[in-house]
């Protein structure tokens, strides 16, 4: 089966529809599927729900889809760096479901692993727990959280072979593997596509079974907070 496509737009062809839920990899601006986000903006798909740890910044990442009013709801743990997000949220144009970061990651992992719900002690006694099932195990209270089953996953890896076996680089791995797992279809963008056999099978972070479509492209890889130490 051919997985490699010529562009982000081609790779998303036939997969986008208004009102869909998309799980996106990335943490801050690190390891985000920037080419696929650009293509979704271009496609103009509306009323999107994004399960994504962050919402980008005003002009990069998911922020560009907020600017174009394509996002209906965000499921995120932290949205602090995005002024347009805050404006839309405070004016009621945008829905926001806060998930603790680990709960969001596990909801994606669980969805991908066929687990519809799980219990966690994260958030017990906080407003996150309101309306959720509580259950005691060995004298401790836990709340039930549900797995995420997204219509589409969009993720970014460093390298992949043409079958989708993928390797991530440093902390750009973050939410990408769990996001990739939880979608009905997963589209991945990478910096370099190689032939099968060129990657050591022992070094694969995400097996190609989770990846349905693949593109290679140039990435801006913007840094959110350049922080350095004085020269020695």
């Amino acid at each position: 089966m051919k997985k490699v496509y010529g562009s982000a737009a081609e790779a998303l062809d036939g997969l986008l529809f208004d009102g869909m839920q998309i799980a996106a990899g990335g943490f801050g601006l690190c390891g985000i599927p920037e080419l696929l986000l650009d293509a979704i903006k271009e496609a103009g798909t509306k009323d999107l729900t994004f399960a994504s740890n962050n919402a980008g910044v005003d002009d990069f990442g998911i922020g560009i889809l907020l600017q174009s009013k394509q996002v209906k709801k965000m499921i995120s743990s932290y949205v602090g760096e995005n002024a347009e997000f805050m404006r839309q949220y405070l004016s009621g144009e945008l829905e926001l479901e806060f998930n603790p970061q680990g709960t969001l990651a596990e909801r994606m992992r669980a969805g991908g692993a066929g687990i519809p719900g799980f219990y966690t002690k994260t958030g017990v006694g906080t407003q996150i727990a309101e309306g959720k099932e509580h259950k005691d195990f060995k004298g401790e209270t836990y709340i039930m959280e549900e797995g995420i089953f997204a219509d589409l996953s969009i993720v970014k890896a460093w390298k992949a072979d043409t079958t989708g076996n993928a390797i991530f680089r440093k902390t750009a791995r973050n939410f990408n593997p769990p996001a990739a797992m939880c979608g009905k279809v997963c589209v991945m963008e990478v910096e370099e596509i190689v032939e099968p056999g060129e990657l050591d099978p022992d070094h694969i972070h995400l097996p190609g079974i989770y990846v349905h479509r693949l593109i290679q492209g140039e990435h801006e890889k913007r840094i959110e907070k350049v922080t350095t130490r004085p020269a020695a």
């Binding site: 801050g28 440093k170 902390t171 750009a172 840094i223 907070k225 922080t227 350095t228």
Partner: peptide, 17 residues
């Protein structure tokens, strides 16, 4: 990192290089 050695793929939870 030292200036010039920042890596966009290597950040902490505060998004700093």
């Amino acid at each position: 990192p030292y200036e010039g050695e920042e890596d966009p793929d290597l950040i902490n939870a505060g998004k700093q290089t």
